[in-house]
Design a protein around this nucleic acid. Sequence first.
DNA 1: CCGGATTTGCGTACATGTATGTTAACCCGC
DNA 2: GCGGGTTAACATACATGTACGCAAATCCGG
Lengths: 218, 218
Amino acid sequence: MAVARGAGSVTTGARRRSPGQRASRGTISRSQIVEAALRSLRANGFEQMTIRRLAADLDVAPMSLYRYIRDKDDLMDEVVEQLLIQSQPLPAATGTWQARLTTAAEGLRHLLVKEPGALYVYLRHPVISPTAIRRMDMMLKILREAGFDAASSKTAYAAIQTYTVGFAALATSRSGWTPPEGTNRTASELVAMTSPKQFASGLRYLLSGIEREAGPAA
Amino acid sequence: MAVARGAGSVTTGARRRSPGQRASRGTISRSQIVEAALRSLRANGFEQMTIRRLAADLDVAPMSLYRYIRDKDDLMDEVVEQLLIQSQPLPAATGTWQARLTTAAEGLRHLLVKEPGALYVYLRHPVISPTAIRRMDMMLKILREAGFDAASSKTAYAAIQTYTVGFAALATSRSGWTPPEGTNRTASELVAMTSPKQFASGLRYLLSGIEREAGPAA
DNA sequence: CCGGATTTGCGTACATGTATGTTAACCCGC
DNA sequence: GCGGGTTAACATACATGTACGCAAATCCGG
């Protein structure tokens, strides 16, 4: 459905080994597949990262990967954990709780916008890899230390996460989209509202409301 | 990728007319295709709504549809406009601006959660069908009437929309997902935070912050 | 070292959206 | 009514993820 057309000369993923020529045992492992996937992401982006191309990179038949991954989503889960590790130098524990949460949210927004594969995973199911959980715990801790009770902290965290992922999703859906020729100006304007500044404004509203509605003084 | 398995006996979309037997001209039209799509959505859900099945319903070859729709996304755009029309009895102009915006946001949340096809479209590109634009203008008007200036209104609207679509996306991604057996309790808890109540809390935070940070008194 | 058991790489097949080119049905002027 | 031109319906083909089951390679007890 609206499949991304390769940029012309991108190979379709034919294996180099001729069919019938079987690779020797132990040629591939799960971690090698994950590495190949990360390489492919960096080289050609998420859309071009297909099972067949990964198999070709590893010089193996496509179905061979399925001994090590349940399906492509399973592979992407692990890829995203790696991306999280690489991208989230857990924010320094300084500044107001608002500033610290803003840093954390901004970090995730940045990753999800830069890496459509990561956004894909976040939209498929909850991300519960170790680093994602640590990140959540960190944000909950910031809220607790700011004086919010356990329930309010969870509600606030969920709202921030929802806003962050939602923003990344809408930003991504807008990038590379142009309104059909005869379109209302208002529409095109709103489409532009996908900047980091806009993200920051909305997040400021949200944090301000959290303070007012759920804070220890409330 | 993690393709939905049909519930056993769901037909694969074979046409009734034998191949080589061509349908007479004027058998299908764009609006008939949209109607068939809406029927299919109601009957079997978005995942089961395939081009081949629509064609079978209309007793026509699959590629025949493409004379009337650019691609499946184009079809879904029109389907969503119909769903918006059917589902959005534009909220009564009563109550505080917060209450009115809450009603509007709640309406969209409800539609997107009930109808995965609509969420799909909202995540693909901006929705600028007439009803969607009217809805946006209505929300902007509510904000202007509450005393916000044009710029603040747009920023606030964008934040609310982001939060609403984000919530629907995460709620959908969680429904029908069960954590892998040995999962941390904290994770499973947060997964549950996808209720309408949770939506309302986050929205209350957001609206409160909008009032405080962007209001006429600010 | 040998033969069954186990592991693992793989061939085939199917459903999906849709690009591309073909052809049959219709329309219209004569 | 008939023949040329237009266009709607279509057949074919391809890339994708992956279910299913086979077969080769390796392992292990004797």
